[in-house]
C-alpha cells in the first residue's frame, strides 16, 4: 500500500486529503511515528483522525487538551470513593483481606483515562491528542515521555506496558509555540486551506446532492472571502455548514438571492467585526466574481 492507496481509502470515507497530507499519514503509519498536524482552525485536522480510525476499523480515542490538563485527567486516577467504600464494607463484615493494600490498589480501582486506555487496547487504536498547544508545557513534557516508550508507571501498581502501539495524531492551532523536542519526535504536516479544486472535491464528497453549478459558485465565493481581511477566516467546516444552510433555505443560485445569502453568512463569519466588514456590496462583488 502506498500513499495514493491511503488517499483513495480516505476519500471513500468522505475525507479528501491532499497528497502531502496523505504521504505524511502514510509514513507515520509505516514508521510508527506520531504525526503532528498544524494549521488554522477548521481545515480538517481533527477529521483526519476520525477518517483514519474508520479505514483502520479501530477505535478513536480522543484527548482534548486544555489549560490545566493534568495527569489525573489524561492518564489515570484512583477510584477513591470505591476504595473507601470497600474499606468500610470490609470493616463491617470483618473481612480484612478484602481491603488489603494490594486489592485496594489493583486495576479494579483504577480509572483509565484516554492515554492509559489507548495503550491497553488489543487492537492499535487511533489516539487523537487534540489542540496540544492549549495544554501546559509541563504536560507536553509528560506526553513526550509516554510517546517515547509507550509505557506508564503507576507508583502503586508498577509499570504498565503497552499492549499495542496506538497511531498517534496530534493537532495544534499554534496558539503557543510547541517545544522543539515534541516537534522532532513527530512527523510533521502543515494543513492549509484547500485550493478551489480540492474544496470542490470535498463538497462533492460531503454534500453529493449539491448541484455542481451551485457548488462551483459556493467554492468561488468562499475562496474570495478568504482573501478578504478578516479576523477569522472561514475553514472547510464553515463552508460545509453554509452548504447545509443554503440547501435548507432552498437556494439554487447565489446571484439571484443576495439578501438570503447575506443572512446566511452567519455560518461563515464568526465575529461581529467580520460581519460588519462584509457589506452587501462586498457580497455582490464576491458573488459576481464567483460566477
Amino acid at each position: 500500500m502506498d500513499h495514493l492507496d491511503l488517499q483513495r481509502r480516505l476519500a471513500e470515507t468522505g475525507y479528501v486529503a491532499g497528497e502531502p497530507l496523505a504521504m505524511a499519514l502514510h509514513l507515520s503509519l509505516v514508521l510508527g511515528r506520531p504525526l503532528l498536524l498544524e494549521g488554522e482552525a477548521g481545515v480538517g485536522k481533527t477529521e483526519i483522525a476520525k477518517a483514519l480510525a474508520t479505514i483502520q476499523k479501530t477505535r478513536l480515542i480522543r484527548l482534548q487538551c486544555y489549560e490545566g490538563l493534568d495527569a489525573a485527567a489524561a492518564i489515570y486516577e484512583w477510584n477513591y470513593q470505591r476504595q473507601l467504600l470497600a474499606i468500610r464494607a470490609a470493616a463491617e463484615t470483618a473481612r480484612v483481606e478484602e481491603a488489603s493494600e494490594e486489592r485496594l490498589f489493583s486495576e479494579r480501582y483504577l480509572l483509565r483515562r484516554p492515554l492509559l486506555e489507548a495503550i491497553l487496547q488489543p487492537v492499535p487504536p487511533v489516539l487523537l491528542i487534540d489542540e496540544i498547544d492549549r495544554a501546559d508545557e509541563a504536560f507536553e513534557a509528560f506526553l513526550l515521555e509516554i510517546l517515547a516508550d509507550f509505557q506508564i508507571t503507576v507508583p502503586e501498581l508498577g509499570t504498565i506496558e503497552a499492549v499495542s502501539r496506538p497511531h498517534v495524531v496530534l493537532t495544534s492551532n499554534a496558539t503557543r509555540e510547541l517545544s522543539d523536542a515534541l516537534r522532532r519526535r513527530c512527523l510533521y504536516a502543515f494543513v492549509d486551506y484547500p485550493d478551489p479544486a480540492m474544496e470542490l472535491a470535498i463538497l462533492a464528497a460531503r454534500a453529493p446532492e449539491l448541484e455542481p453549478a451551485l457548488a462551483a459558485q459556493i467554492v468561488g465565493f468562499v475562496q474570495g472571502l478568504r482573501r478578504e481581511e478578516l479576523e477569522k477566516t472561514p475553514g472547510i467546516a464553515e463552508t460545509l455548514d453554509w452548504v447545509a444552510a443554503l440547501s435548507g433555505l432552498g437556494i439554487n443560485d447565489l446571484a439571484a438571492s443576495l439578501a438570503t445569502v447575506q443572512a446566511s453568512l452567519v455560518c461563515l463569519l464568526k465575529t461581529s467585526a467580520d460581519q460588519a466588514a462584509v457589506t452587501p456590496e462586498v457580497i455582490a462583488r464576491l458573488v459576481d466574481r464567483a460566477a
Binding site: M23, D180, R183, F190
Partner: peptide, 10 residues
C-alpha cells in the same frame, strides 16, 4: 513529499 514530512517541523 516524504522528505517534506520527515524533516520539517514548523
Amino acid at each position: 513529499l516524504a522528505l517534506k514530512t520527515l524533516v520539517t517541523t514548523t
